[in-house]
Amino acid sequence: MVMAFSVLAQKYVLDEGSITFFSEATLENIQAKNTKVTSIFNSTTNEIVFSVPNNQFQFEKKLMQQHFNEKYMESEKYPRSTFSGTLEGFNLSIVGTQHVKAIGKISIHGVTQSVEIPGTAEVRSGNLFMESVFMIKLTDYKIKIPQLLWQNIAEEIEVTVSFTYKSQ
């Protein structure tokens, strides 16, 4: 019984991953990449969690990075953004790309929202690859919309997730 459980409860731990966000604006597109994300996927229960240290988003302009942390994300107060939920439509034994949905709760800037994130998953040579692109509305998370000079940047930003897991 015990053995059965420890075999079944197979955990995939993030080996390499990045979360990028992109915001299109007339004057200047804003992009930042975070490679310090951590994640665990439990293939027995299909539970998936990830955690993002907000101060590790790297911007091209460092002043922008400082403003992002100080004024918008308030990273000293809310150091992490997290997701916890389950991966629906995933079958470990299927070969090739599968369309999946991560259903659960996302927490950003101290606000938790229920979300459904569409994406793809693929098992290849023992590794698990997940990818997703989704939109986040800043006002849903009580994040003030930043201004570039007189112009507001987009209310919604595009988030791209790219995860590579190793089984443990």
Partner: peptide, 10 residues
Amino acid sequence: AQDDLLQELI
């Protein structure tokens, strides 16, 4: 379990 899994990360 999910919350606990999250605790493992942070």
